[in-house]
Simulated scan of single mutants.
Amino acid sequence: MADFVLVPGAWLGSWAWDDVVPELRTAGHGAHPLTLSGLAEKQGVRAGQQAHVQDIVDEVDRLDLRDVILVGHSYSGIPVGQAAERIGDRLRRVVFVDSNVPADGGSFASSWWQGQAAFEASIAEHGGFWALPTAADCEGQGLTDEQIARFVDRATPHPGATLTEPAVLTHPLGELPATYIKCLLDGPEPSDDVAKLLTGERWRLVEMNTGHWPMFSHPHELAEILLGAAEGA
């Protein structure tokens, strides 16, 4: 039996995993969805990048988990990748779900496609938060109108400091046992940094023919991939 710690991406809380958790538990595994500081029911809690890393480490410690599979979606791949090396031999595997990955000294903002300055300016314009997504932002990602409405209605502004503070890694990320899930509607190829990591012996690629939020669009298929990761497949 493995223990999955499921960390949602930007704007989301633990509720994002509601359709995935039952399948993992039915298969006999532990499933622990986590809301990061400053989001969803934890709104109002001040949070930076390292606070989110600590949220994940603290959850593993609080529940005294072993054989941990850390799952990070989108933004949360950055804190998950850092937490993975900090929990030591409790880690079984990391699963990055169409996510960013950490680079020592880098941040989410530093790899933003329009440049870090533009991203930081947008955060400043929105009171220190990454502005909420709109329904239009979710188009073309394989989501139904109902799924888009659920996402947009429940999303909460994302704390800007978590996106601009640098990651801290003490070992090469490629040393972690990892599965990377690429959602093809969000782009046919992994980013260059992920592609490089996938050339290593400890990383494997799984593709999903859906968009950036597979926990909404294809929760059953996503759960099956996570269960496969628990078996090393």
Rank of each mutant, 00 (worst) to 15 (best):
L91Y: 08
F96A: 00
F96E: 00
V97W: 07
V97T: 00
D98Q: 03
S99E: 01
V101F: 00
V101L: 03
P102L: 00
P102D: 02
P102Y: 00
P102K: 00
D104P: 05
G105C: 02
G105P: 07
G105A: 02
G106F: 01
S107G: 07
A109R: 07
S111D: 07
W113M: 14
G115R: 03
Q116C: 07
A117F: 01
A118F: 13
E120A: 12
A121N: 10
A121L: 04
I123N: 11
A124G: 10
H126S: 11
H126R: 10
G127Y: 12
G128D: 09
F129W: 11
F129A: 13
F129P: 03
L132S: 05
L132M: 14
P133R: 08
P133A: 08
T134C: 10
A135P: 01
A136R: 13
A136K: 12
A136I: 09
D137H: 08
D137Q: 04
C138M: 15
E139F: 00
Q141F: 04
L143P: 05
L143I: 02
T144R: 06
D145W: 00
D145L: 10
E146S: 13
E146H: 10
R150D: 15
R150F: 14
V152N: 07
R154P: 02
P157I: 03
P157F: 04
P157S: 02
H158Q: 15
H158E: 11
P159W: 08
A161M: 04
A161N: 05
L163C: 02
T164Y: 00
E165F: 01
E165G: 11
E165M: 05
P166N: 05
P166T: 01
V168I: 12
T170C: 03
H171A: 15
P172K: 04
L173A: 03
L173I: 09
E175W: 05
L176C: 09
P177K: 03
A178M: 02
A178G: 12
Y180V: 02
I181M: 06
I181S: 04
I181R: 10
K182W: 09
C183Q: 10
L184C: 10
L184W: 01
L185Q: 15
L185R: 14
D186T: 05
G187C: 08
G187V: 06
E189D: 15
S191M: 13
L197Q: 09
L198P: 07
L198V: 05
L198H: 12
T199I: 06
G200Q: 12
R202C: 08
R202F: 11
R202M: 11
R202G: 01
W203N: 07
L205Q: 13
M208R: 12
M208D: 07
T210W: 05
